[in-house]
Simulated assay, not measured.
Amino acid sequence: MPSDNNHDFEPVYSRRADKKPHYKEKNHPKRRLIGWSIFAALLLLVGGGLTWGYGAYKSAKKTFKQTYDSTPIQKERNISSVIKQGKPLSILLLGTDTGALGRHDTGRTDTMIVATVNAKQKTVHLTSIARDTKVVVPKDSQPYEKINAAYTIGGAGTAVKTVQNLLDIPIDFYAIVNMGGLEKMVNAVGGVDVIPPLTFNYGHAHVVKGHKIHLNGRQALDYSRMRDNDPLGDYGRQARQKQVIKRLALKGVGISSLPRYKTILSSLNGNLKTDMTFNDMITIRAKYGDATHHIKSQNLQGQDAMIDGLSYQVVPNKELLHVSNDIRRTLNLSQSGKLKAQQSRTDSVVGYSSTAKSQSSTYNGY
């Protein structure tokens, strides 16, 4: 099966610092996000299981016990207290391709989205972080890295800490979804229907722009992975990933068959890891579930930078402060007048100002 893994996972490289980077401003097309679909899928799956009786409840509890990752992760606040009181919470959504097409390495997180959920305002705010964003990774031997390497370097804990430092916000939970499990999940719901935004042939996916097509698991995986022939590159791929996962989530919640439901849960094994316990999910579903009907999204907007022969997205300090405060506002936290030291270090190679702005959009329902 064709693969573009060489583009997704770069080899470990040595840093040749101190070379002056060349910057180029770039106005990205509006990024289409898949993170809210992952979050909605978690909530809908748990909520749907509760309505199908005790048998489904036991199956869900068993599955999510296996997806739970008990690895100690340094957090900035008491999470149990946050969700018990229904205060705004944050979830770091990570997407990786580890294990897909025979891969067994740790991989990098090419999708990274911070979701903040406000039960009182019934809103979800999503902030997408480009995978090539230049950051300082805690305890790393290099002065800077691409943010998608943080998970490779130190696992979920390092990814969480890196995002906390970058945005000056607390991360309450994380959830990592392996795109390699997409094939099993799609087959478990009987396939999905999509309307392709472009015509292409890639692996088992043969699609025509604007023509509705039913995809099985293998076709959906290839449909979601193609990037090189998409004029929008990685942005186009993310749009198609969102398209498939959205249909997956909506179709999954409509299934009433217990055997089919158990198959869906089984497809999550090995493809989902989170530090949410099953009880956390139940509480979040009860207290925050309505928030998913009103979703806003934005990007942490960077500038293209070639640093030592590698392509980065460097976020200007003004943009970083703006987005940091925007997220803090959704969490009912105080505003900052300036960046903290660990934030400003991400732009330490050279100083410059930017006219790039984060782009936002609002989704009503899903």
Rank of each mutant, 00 (worst) to 15 (best):
G86L: 01
G86A: 02
G86W: 01
G86I: 01
K87P: 00
P88E: 01
L89N: 04
L89V: 14
S90C: 08
S90Q: 10
L92Q: 00
L92Y: 01
L93H: 09
L93Y: 10
L94E: 12
L94G: 05
T96M: 09
D97Q: 06
T98Q: 15
T98V: 07
T98G: 13
T98P: 05
G99Y: 03
A100E: 14
A100M: 11
A100V: 05
G102C: 09
G102Q: 02
G102P: 07
R103T: 06
R103H: 13
G107Y: 07
R108N: 14
R108K: 14
R108S: 12
R108E: 12
T109G: 02
T109S: 13
T111L: 08
T111N: 03
M112P: 01
V114G: 10
V114L: 14
V114Y: 06
A115D: 00
T116K: 12
T116R: 12
N118L: 07
A119S: 12
A119Q: 09
K120S: 12
Q121W: 00
Q121D: 09
Q121L: 13
Q121A: 15
K122V: 08
K122A: 15
K122N: 13
V124Y: 06
V124W: 03
V124L: 09
H125E: 15
L126Y: 00
L126D: 04
L126I: 13
I129D: 08
R131K: 10
D132M: 01
T133Q: 03
T133L: 02
T133C: 05
K134P: 03
K134C: 02
V136K: 11
V137W: 06
K139F: 05
D140Y: 07
D140N: 12
D140K: 09
Q142E: 13
Q142V: 13
P143E: 12
Y144C: 10
Y144V: 05
Y144S: 14
E145Q: 13
E145L: 02
I147C: 07
N148S: 08
A149Y: 06
A149R: 06
T152W: 12
T152A: 15
I153W: 15
G154T: 01
G154Y: 03
G155R: 06
A156S: 11
A156N: 04
A156P: 04
A156G: 01
A156Q: 07
G157W: 08
A159V: 11
A159N: 05
A159W: 02
A159K: 10
V160Y: 02
V160S: 03
